[in-house]
Structures are given as structure tokens and as C-alpha cells.
């Protein structure tokens, strides 16, 4: 697997999974689902979804280099980034479901306690992957 293919795979994972999540948030907002908690809901998305998308966007915004066509140096870093990303995305969807199933305010506030920790792991692993890809 080349570096470029690995970057596309990681980007595709996030793109395919984040778009429906954001679409659900937009539709909920338009339907008044969040009521007076709309700001909290979007702060939740801004805090726990967008930083990862921004990191991927930032990595792609850098002009492609000849190294992109080289074989992947560390498969562990790539697969680690994929696995922690997939795990994190599953958690995001579970929290999205909890918004609808239980106490909205509580699920928005309390999810921050564990999402922040997992997100740090994800961003760290993704950052390592993109930095390794540039070496």
C-alpha cells in the first residue's frame, strides 16, 4: 500500500462517516430537535468532530509530494489511526443516539468527559500518521 492510498483510506473513513453525522445534526436543527440546546449541540460537533476533519483537510491542503507514491513505511501507525478513528466514530454515533434516547442536556455534557480523552488519542495517532507520511 502506498502512502497516498493510505491517506485516501483514512480520509474516506472520516468523510463517509462524518457526512451522515453532520447531516443528522443539520436535520435535527431544522426540525427543532435540540430546542434551546441547539448551541450546545453544535458546540459538541465543533469540539468533537471538526478538529479531526480539519486535521485531514490540513494534511491534504499541503501539496502532494513524490513520497506519496512510496510504500507505506509503518503499517502499524496507519492501521492504528484507522482503528482508533473507527472506534471514535462509533462512539460519536452512540452519543448521537443518546441525544435522542435520554436526557439531552446530560448526554451533551457528559459525553465530553470521555470523548475528549478518546479524541486526544485519535488526533495523536492521526497526526503521527500524517507526519510519518511526510518523512
Amino acid at each position: 500500500m502506498t502512502i497516498k492510498t493510505a491517506k485516501i483510506a483514512l480520509t474516506a473513513l472520516w468523510g463517509v462517516c462524518a457526512i451522515p453525522l453532520l447531516l443528522v445534526l443539520v436535520l435535527r436543527q431544522l426540525n427543532g430537535f435540540y430546542g434551546d440546546q441547539a448551541q450546545a449541540a453544535w458546540s459538541w460537533a465543533a469540539q468533537f468532530v471538526f478538529p479531526n476533519l480539519t486535521l485531514i483537510g490540513g494534511a491534504w491542503s499541503v501539496a502532494g509530494s513524490p513520497e506519496d507514491d512510496k510504500p507505506l513505511g509503518s503499517a502499524i501507525v496507519f492501521w492504528g489511526a484507522m482503528i482508533v478513528s473507527a472506534f471514535y466514530i462509533v462512539i460519536l454515533y452512540i452519543v448521537l443516539g443518546a441525544h435522542a434516547s435520554g436526557q439531552l442536556r446530560a448526554s451533551l455534557e457528559q459525553s465530553g468527559l470521555f470523548l475528549g480523552l478518546i479524541q486526544a488519542l485519535v488526533v495523536g495517532w492521526m497526526g503521527k500518521f500524517f507526519i510519518e507520511a511526510k518523512r
Partner: peptide, 18 residues
């Protein structure tokens, strides 16, 4: 006097009305 926790489901994840 508050909505009872309905449990997580596939439908609740994609629910767009409350």
C-alpha cells in the same frame, strides 16, 4: 415528569425529530 430513557437503538441514532 421527564422522558424515560428509551435505550439506544439504530433508529435513535438517526432520529431527526424528538
Amino acid at each position: 415528569t421527564q422522558k424515560v430513557y428509551a435505550g439506544l437503538s439504530f433508529a435513535s441514532i438517526f432520529a431527526i425529530t424528538r
